[in-house]
Design a protein around this nucleic acid. Structure first.
Lengths: 200, 200
DNA sequence: TTTTGTACCAACCAAATGGTTAAACCAACT
DNA sequence: AGTTGGTTTAACCATTTGGTTGGTACAAAA
């Protein structure tokens, strides 16, 4: 409710997040970020030498918020059902709170790939190994790990990305679309489970 | 192979498509488009009064290329399997030829929603009615049409959008990712069919 | 032959934009 | 009181950017 009294640096980060996520790197203006942080434009450059440095900071921060730390969970021995629920619930909650996040990351990685390089290596192979292990133990039907992951994440993320197109094509209000998104937790969970079970 | 001798307007459209799709509205530069079309920047404004008008043209053109005209097919009485194959094959072919298209449309609709308004109404309701009819005739198990459509399109489109992220996380080469995309026609088709069948 | 209209361009312009400077402010130490 | 060092600002700067101007070239119409 009440605006916390944040120090300048925190206000800059908050403002930069808001503006960069909404407008993208090319569309965001340093002045806009300064206004949002209620500081002078020169202050921005005092704390962050350049727009690029600021973007680096926000991008890596958001990237790390988005990439889930579930590699361990998949190896925890839990059933696929449990892991899937955990995944989907976490992702959809995150997406509900951060509707601009996927577009921001995807857009940045496509159009400003230079920002990817500062990201450290990620344990993708671990996830693949985890899935393959579950398949070997017959806890999962044979499916290529990449495809399974693309399916799970795509089914979660796409509705957030496609919101404007679907709203337009089906002439939905924001409230109606919100309901659809709420329904997704069950829909995606059962859809994936049904697809995977039927493969056995 | 050989560069056709196109007239100026065609060259402008081609150039604008290339640059706008790749860079987005905010990132694209009129000079860049002029260079690509091998004309003077003033020529751009001779044919298209402003960047906005040019974007309007390209956006509506691309939007109409992307939104499929399958509403009739779904009502054609064909089985769900046939319609699904048709959908998926068409979409994935289109996406393979136009990898920048989904990001361009999604990005534009999120960040420049003013361009949506010039798009005429679309027969989304017809699709919904078609699906509901198939469900009533027990040709399809009960599933909310919006969800079915989100699932189908999401599973097709997301891998194209997520390419950079997946390449990074799993350290894939372009060739490796290309193979994954090729596999998708079968993967998506069976995944959806299995999920839907299991619902009955 | 003259007029007219379309295609085209070099040079230009005003505004916007990322970034800098030099000085002021201010709390903490000496 | 005076110095120091981080913080803040108004004013400024160089470049980029979308867009304009005034004019040329040229072919078709009159």
């Amino acid at each position: 409710m009440e605006e916390k009294e944040l120090n300048t640096e925190e206000r800059i980060i908050q403002a930069a997040e808001k503006i960069l996520l909404k407008e993208g790197y090319a569309g965001a203006r340093m002045q806009q970020i300064a206004d949002e942080a209620q500081i002078n434009k020169a202050m921005l450059h005092y704390y962050y030498k350049s727009k690029e440095k600021l973007m680096e900071k926000i991008f890596s921060k958001k990237f790390n918020e988005f990439i889930p730390k579930v590699a361990e969970v998949i190896q925890s021995g839990a059933t696929f059902e449990v892991v899937l629920r955990y995944y989907i619930d976490n992702y959809l909650d995150l997406l509900e709170k951060n509707p601009y996040l996927p577009l921001f990351l995807i857009d940045t990685m496509h159009r400003n790939p230079e920002f990817i390089n500062q990201i450290p290596e990620l344990p993708g192979k671990v996830f693949v190994a985890g899935i393959e292990q579950q398949i070997a133990q017959h806890k999962l039907p044979p499916i290529k790990p990449y495809h399974l992951l693309l399916n799970i994440i795509g089914l979660c993320v796409f509705p957030v990305l496609a919101r404007p197109i679907f709203k337009k094509v089906f002439q939905l209000t924001d409230e109606e679309y919100q309901i659809i998104l709420k329904e997704r937790k069950e829909e995606v969970y059962h859809f994936i489970l049904d697809a995977v079970k039927n493969r056995e």
